[in-house]
């Protein structure tokens, strides 16, 4: 399930946006969120997307995450045109290759950390025992061993975001998409979260695309892309150390 032709031809990009535009609404009320984006992200990259509010970076993330489709242009995920996929096919792509981390954590309330992490595996049809073991390993990897039975309400913001990260990586995704993961956290927690993400990138080779307002957080990435008014304004390489 995790082996695709691209791993043999590792030179081809994992993610490729070609002239992607996104328009919301019609006619005069039309809002051009993206005005033609060309972007390549290779296997194992850690990319930070920055830009002011309304610059289109969240729209871009939604398209990368197959939650939304481009109005124009093409989005090739591992060589597959995601714009041509049906709703269910995109759901399968998310299920098998993508992991999400959101600003608002988006955990299921009144559900234990362990069960939150198990959620994507349920839809994959993983058997109960294996599912439990994978979820426990993922929680341990984000440093939450011993917190499995706690519900989100009983965890701090930083811990909740760790649960969300565990949920995102429990399926061993190819890409982890993080939309302002530290937006609701204080700077100490934010740094911890970024270190967890950076570790997954360097140790497991999970490709990470991160949206952030905060230059300190973007500094963890190896490449920084700046959006402005729906287009890519600038792009710079970064050492990957803050």
């Amino acid at each position: 399930m995790n082996t695709t032709p691209s791993e043999q031809i590792s030179k081809s990009p994992l993610i490729e946006l070609k002239g992607v535009a996104k328009v919301y609404g019609k006619g005069r009320a039309a809002m051009h969120a993206l005005r033609g984006i060309d972007l390549r992200i290779d296997h194992g990259e850690f990319v930070a997307v920055m830009g002011p509010s309304g610059s289109g970076k969240s729209t871009c993330m939604n398209i990368l995450g197959c939650l939304d489709t481009p109005s124009a242009g093409a989005y090739l995920f591992d060589g597959v045109d995601a714009g041509e996929l049906s709703r269910d096919q995109r759901a399968l792509l998310r299920r098998n290759y993508l992991g999400f981390v959101f600003q608002g954590f988006n955990l299921l309330n009144r559900t234990s950390a362990l069960e939150n992490v198990e959620l994507p595996l349920i839809y994959r049809g993983t058997p109960t025992g294996e599912r439990r073991a994978c979820a426990l390993r993922a929680l341990e990897a984000v440093g939450l061993k011993g917190w499995e039975t706690h519900t989100p309400g009983e965890l701090s913001g930083g811990q909740q975001q760790r649960v969300a990260i565990a949920r995102a990586i429990v399926t061993n995704p190819k890409v982890l998409l993080a939309d302002e993961p530290t937006g609701n956290l204080d700077s100490a927690c934010s740094r911890e979260i970024m270190e967890v993400l950076a570790a997954f990138n360097s140790e497991r080779g999970i490709t990470i695309a991160l949206v952030t307002h905060d230059a300190d957080m973007a500094a963890y990435a190896k490449r920084i892309i700046r959006f402005l008014d729906g287009i890519i304004d600038s792009e710079e390489q970064n050492g990957g150390t803050p």
Partner: peptide
């Protein structure tokens, strides 16, 4: 609604 959004995001099909 939010729970449904989460489920869809992690790969639940419409059918699920």
């Amino acid at each position: 609604t939010r729970e449904i959004g989460i489920r869809l995001a992690v790969g639940a099909l419409e059918r699920d």
